[in-house]
Design a protein around this nucleic acid. Structure first.
Lengths: 151, 151
DNA sequence: TTTATTTAGTGGTATATGCCACTAACTGCG
DNA sequence: CGCAGTTAGTGGCATATACCACTAAATAAA
């Protein structure tokens, strides 16, 4: 028998968020599997695609992701030839990122699968519900938790 | 082709969820840092605590987490002496998990920090909002994406 | 009872992510 | 100009999480 829902799970905002993320991630990954990309990778390729040869820092900021984490995540995509980087000639500290032609093809392939996952999710969860959820999640992403500095 | 005209990550339910999860995770982890535990670890200890010496499979199911992932996540906690496992005498396939006395102390310490994070989140995001959010996330966790089998 | 099947975990491998220490490169200022 | 401070990334290390192949144990089937 299952232990079903025990009191603690539903109480922590963070735990609830992670739990839902695992669930949804498994679903999206599953649908996207035929492309050979994880949902996170597809999302990253897409982010690079819609940016204008974005700098790594810019991508990381968009995704609210640690810069070094982005670097690590990018590696398999570079290795597989979907993405390439180049130093910004104006400021050689900055490394810009772009899709390779191959990467673009792969992204297009993955987007078709993404649409299937997205569609199915919205069929099951409700389009309105999904929209509200995304809005709420974006709000969280935009929150500022900093304590007012004592200075 | 500016990123203003193209749909951002706001459109993908999964991407929005992950993004929010990174944000919130960073915040909770930050607050919990003094305990030496990550928010995920605190959540796991708590889950074990409220269970009745739960089996690994039961924990994994509760958390919607892969069983092997749970096994890996558990390792540092076992290594640090917060958790111990033992075979179920009725069914030796089953491995049950419980907190050590040390683990209980650590959990109590972590819970105090958790409350601070939780409180601050609800101050910033709104208590009502947080409650609705958790409800929505729990709904997602409960969804069934399986295609109707042709049975 | 023997064999086939299902169930519970383990270990390996790979991606996802974060923090920290460190380097290179730009910026400001004297 | 030359040095202190800031900014952008890198690499190492650790946890989070998933899938797969495999073993052991319990169960159903023959």
């Amino acid at each position: 028998m299952s232990k079903d829902t025990l009191p603690g799970l539903t109480l922590c905002n963070n735990a609830a968020l992670r739990r839902a993320a695992r669930k949804l991630g498994q679903f999206y990954d599953d649908v996207m599997a035929p492309s050979g990309l994880k949902a996170t990778q597809q999302g990253l390729l897409y982010q690079i695609h819609i940016g204008n040869e974005p700098a790594m820092g810019a991508i990381a900021a968009s995704l609210i992701m640690d810069l070094s984490a982005l670097g690590h995540t990018l590696k398999p995509l570079i290795r597989d030839g979907y993405v390439e980087t180049f130093a910004d000639p104006e400021d050689r500290r900055i490394k810009r990122v772009r899709l390779t032609p191959q990467g673009l093809v792969k992204l297009e392939e993955a987007m078709k699968l993404w649409q299937i996952a997205q569609q199915r999710f919205e069929d099951v969860a409700g389009k309105e519900q999904a929209e509200r959820l995304r809005a709420a999640l974006d709000e969280i992403a935009a929150l500022d938790f900093d304590l007012p500095p004592a200075s």
